[in-house]
Amino acid sequence: MTLALRAMTRLANWPDLAEARPSCGTGRALRSAQGEIVHFHSDHDVDLHLTDRAIRRFEDHLKGATAVRMVPGSRWVTLHLEVDADIDLLLTLVSVALQAHLTSPVADDAVPASCNDR
């Protein structure tokens, strides 16, 4: 079982997430009531939708994580899953994303821009 599939399986059991078609049309996605949260594009690459506020708050930590790739101006961050610890990082960031979308919804974040899989 690939790391992405293991992560997807774990996250699919979270009560606030449901499987959905990704708006980008590639791979599989999980969404909350507030919108798309995560896209699984390959066996190793995952895009996670954060709010602008969450990205600014955790930017130094995100930039310091070797598994994370940030695209300037995007509300999505890409995680490259190489080891089990990357799944743990993804689960933590999904929790941050859910909390960010729930507690501080911003009009611009309601409809996510294209994910980073382009």
Rank of each mutant, 00 (worst) to 15 (best):
C24Y: 03
G64P: 03
A54H: 09
A4L: 02
S74L: 04
P15A: 11
M70Q: 09
D60V: 11
V46G: 09
A54I: 01
D60N: 12
I55E: 08
L81V: 07
N13I: 00
D86G: 07
D60A: 14
V71A: 07
I37P: 00
L5Y: 12
T51W: 06
R10Y: 05
H44W: 11
T2V: 06
Q34I: 03
V111R: 04
S23R: 13
H49Q: 12
T103Y: 07
E36Q: 05
D108G: 13
T51E: 08
A4D: 00
G35A: 03
A4M: 03
R10G: 08
C24F: 03
L93W: 07
L81T: 07
A107M: 10
L48A: 12
G25L: 07
S114P: 07
R28G: 03
V111Y: 02
V46D: 05
R53G: 02
V106N: 12
D47H: 07
P15H: 12
S114N: 13
Q34H: 08
H49M: 11
L93K: 02
A18W: 04
V68R: 06
V94H: 06
D86P: 04
A29T: 02
R75W: 07
L81W: 08
T51D: 09
P22E: 01
S42K: 10
L30H: 01
V111D: 03
P72V: 06
G64W: 03
L11M: 06
V94W: 03
R57H: 12
D52A: 14
I55V: 14
I55S: 07
V96G: 00
D86W: 03
V38N: 09
A97M: 00
R56C: 05
A100Q: 10
A12W: 01
P15W: 06
L91Y: 01
D43N: 13
H61K: 13
I37S: 00
E59L: 13
R75L: 01
S32V: 02
A97N: 00
C24D: 14
L5R: 14
R57F: 11
L79R: 12
T92D: 08
P105W: 04
L62W: 00
R53K: 13
G35T: 01
V106F: 08
S23G: 11
H39Y: 10
R57V: 10
S104V: 09
H41C: 15
R28N: 08
R10I: 04
V77T: 06
V68W: 09
V83L: 04
L48M: 10
T51Y: 06
H39L: 09
D16P: 04
E59G: 02
L5Q: 15
C24N: 12
L98M: 09
C115A: 11
D43E: 15
D52N: 11
G35R: 02
S74P: 00
R10M: 06
S104D: 13
N13Y: 02
L17M: 04
H41R: 14
L91H: 01
P105M: 04
V71C: 06
A18M: 05
P72T: 08
V68A: 07
A113T: 13
E59C: 06
D47P: 00
H80R: 15
H39N: 15
G73K: 06
D88Y: 01
E19A: 10
V83D: 10
S42I: 12
V83P: 01
T78A: 10
A4T: 15
D47K: 13
V46E: 12
C24L: 04
G35C: 04
A12N: 02
D108A: 14
M70W: 00
L5P: 00
E82W: 04
